[in-house]
């Protein structure tokens, strides 16, 4: 896989492949381990890697690899879903603000400013305090938190493009607004928007990990990367993989996706 990855010429393909890899890992990963992520056995806690437990065990003596694969599933899927939400809603509103009447921009703009002024963690705490910590609530919360940012980016991009002559010419021709948005504006803002998606994804991974670390994200018996780190804090003293590996995975996931999307958008 890694060899193939390096050989790919186009940076664009590389980004697509990397995203596909993480989604596949999220979907199929838990099937790769024979251990039950929730099973507390007779094993010692915080044991090192062995043939039976490739990444050792956690603070309850559960298999770290099985829990890690499960944690990746939650983190990746939740964050992809919320990023998808925030970026599509944000882009839609951003373009709408530029192409519709003036009051649309005034209303959406002020709303976005209002949301941006609320600290994201505080907002998440508030929503979760009211609605509880279901998966759906988490996705929506994170989605809403990052929508204003995506909105601002897309509005700024669309504003610049909408002023260019080829859009003017299309309007002079009498093209419909949907055509102008889909054919003239969107393709030309795709590059920077993709880079923005990468950024939003990282933010949501970090926010979810934060929430889980505080104990209000993904709830046991389910697990995500952030809650794994919190559970196994004690293992730090033993150098246990149960604490270190999820941290490394968070870093690799966020930095990798961001680099891949950044370079693919720059090459357009």
């Amino acid at each position: 896989m890694i060899v193939m990855f390096g050989k790919l010429r186009s940076k664009h393909d590389r980004a697509v492949l990397l995203i596909a890899f993480w989604i596949l890992l999220a979907l199929l990963g838990p099937l790769c381990s024979s251990h039950d992520p929730g099973a507390i056995g007779m094993q010692p806690v915080f044991s090192g890697p062995s043939m039976a437990h490739l990444l050792g065990t956690d603070y309850l003596g559960r298999d770290t690899l099985a829990r890690l694969l499960n944690g990746i599933r939650h983190t990746v899927l939740l964050c992809f879903a919320s990023t998808l939400f925030s970026c599509s809603v944000g882009t839609f509103l951003g373009i709408a603000a530029v192409t519709s009447r003036v009051w649309v921009e005034a209303v959406t703009g002020r709303l976005a400013d209002g949301f941006l002024s609320i600290p994201s963690l505080l907002f998440a705490l508030l929503v979760i305090a009211v609605f509880g910590t279901s998966t759906g609530a988490l996705i929506m919360t994170m989605g809403i938190i990052y929508t204003p940012g995506a909105y601002r980016t897309s509005r700024a991009l669309a504003q610049r493009i909408a002023r260019l002559d080829f859009v003017t010419v299309a309007r002079a021709r009498g093209e419909s607004t949907p055509y102008i948005i889909l054919q003239e504006i969107l393709p030309n803002m795709a590059g920077p928007m993709i880079a923005d998606v990468g950024l939003r994804f990282i933010y949501s991974v970090l926010l979810l990990s934060n929430l889980s670390f505080l104990g209000i994200g993904v709830q046991p018996p389910e697990v995500d990367l952030g809650s794994m780190v919190r559970e196994n804090m004690l293992g730090m003293a033993y150098g246990s993989p149960a604490m270190i590996v999820p941290v490394i995975v968070i870093a690799v996931l966020t930095v990798g996706i961001n680099l891949a999307l950044d370079s693919s958008s720059g090459k357009r």
Binding site: L164, F166, T168, V169, A172, Q183, E184, N188, A190
Partner: peptide, 14 residues
């Protein structure tokens, strides 16, 4: 209308 700036008058992604 044939606009002034040939650089911005054609959609760069088409």
């Amino acid at each position: 209308l044939v606009a002034q700036n040939a650089d911005s008058v054609l959609n760069p992604s088409k």
